[in-house]
């Protein structure tokens, strides 16, 4: 129960193609996260799965059954909206019970299910309150309660945490992860926050401009991004992409005679990517590259250091927070060669 499969789904609004042929599968019990920048089509894709938008092409299958033409309520999915979308004139109880009442469930059964859902979400003391008397986090939980009470085949979350403050977001993120473990239901979750994506997902779908850039586990995406877009989108601070360079003699050759030895490669890499934590600061004598500090952000445990490297340009380095760095200070850099990422001239991993 709860396999969601998209086959070459497209969606256009007039002449504008928003989703350009997306195929993917959310296996039963899997937590799939759609992530991408604003306007990449991730919310539209979720609404297509929900049935709130009609597809322009392709098909959507739930548990093997083609639901492309079905109304939202016949797909067996629940959705949690970004803005909560609670019925303001109903109490918390009424909000959670609404779907069951609509489905004609017996009163006693409704009562039992609503109270069970409220218990799970710690909403029991608030059952008689109206949404306007609740805090943001409580409203979010009511929205989730409304979704779980129907025992759907799958849950759809549309950026559910984006209206919460940072502390509450972390807490609710953990609650959603626990809920997923508890219910074991398929969940499809949309976010633009890659930290949410990394922490919650079994499988991440990175979208850009209506197309799937890569599908994989958080670790796959982090350690083996398929292209420069994914490389830069996943990870914070983002991966450094060194300027295009020519490869020859086991080294990348940059301007001003600067070169980085990378050893023998099968393909011909054009762009080298390196994450900030894979660059270390060192004394100038031991350095592979010499650089000077242009800007430093103190984050507590870490320093987020921006350095300028002659022939290469600006790089971002994660350094120990205890280091005291001044702007203009010369530093040496060493790259962890085992962690470098190589892309061809089209930005595709080689």
């Amino acid at each position: 129960m709860g396999t969601i499969e998209l086959k070459n789904v497209t969606k256009s609004f007039g002449p504008v193609a928003v989703i350009k042929g997306v195929s993917l599968t959310a296996e039963e019990g899997e937590f799939v996260v759609f992530v991408g920048p604003s306007g990449c089509g991730k919310s539209t894709l979720l609404r297509l799965i929900a049935g709130l938008e009609e597809t322009s092409g392709g098909s959507i299958h739930i548990d093997g059954k083609d639901v492309t033409e079905l109304d939202p309520n016949h797909r067996g999915l629940s959705m949690v909206f970004q803005s909560y979308a609670l019925y303001p004139h109903m109490t918390v109880y009424g909000n959670i019970a609404f779907a069951l009442k609509t489905a004609g469930v017996a009163k006693l059964e409704i009562d039992r299910k609503v109270r069970a859902a409220a218990e799970t979400l710690k909403l029991t003391p608030y059952l008689d309150r109206k949404p306007k008397d609740l805090s943001g986090g409580q409203r979010q939980r009511v929205a989730i309660g409304r979704a779980i009470v129907r025992q759907p085949k799958g849950f759809l979350f549309d950026e559910p945490l984006s209206n919460l403050d940072a502390a509450l977001r972390t807490q609710t993120r953990i609650e959603i992860a626990n809920l997923h473990k508890e219910l074991g239901a398929t969940m499809v979750y949309v976010t633009h926050d890659q930290i949410e994506a990394m922490t919650l997902a079994d499988k991440i779908v990175v979208l850009n401009d209506g197309e799937v850039m890569q599908i994989g586990s958080p670790k796959e995406l982090y350690y083996a991004p398929k292209n420069t877009f994914v490389a830069q989108f996943i990870g914070s601070p983002k991966m450094n992409l060194l300027p295009r360079a020519s490869y020859g003699g086991g080294a990348m050759h940059y301007q001003d005679g600067v070169k980085i030895d990378i050893g023998h490669m099968d393909g011909t890499p054009s762009i080298v990517g390196v994450r900030p934590e894979d660059i270390s600061l060192c004394p100038l004598g031991e350095a592979e590259l010499s650089a000077s500090v242009t800007h430093n952000e103190f984050h507590g445990a870490d320093n987020n250091v921006f350095v300028s490297v002659p022939g290469i340009g600006s790089l971002n380095v994660r350094a120990n927070g205890k280091l005291d760095l001044q702007n203009g200070q010369p530093v040496g850099l060493v790259l962890d060669k085992s962690q470098l990422h190589y892309f061809d001239e089209n930005g595709v991993r080689t």
Binding site: L52, P72, N73, S83, A85, Y87
Partner: peptide, 18 residues
């Protein structure tokens, strides 16, 4: 009235009259 309320009701199985 936020349109999302209509959509939420549709997800909850409500038809147009409801």
């Amino acid at each position: 009235v936020p349109y999302e309320l209509d959509e939420a009701a549709r997800m909850d199985g409500a038809r147009i009259f409801t």
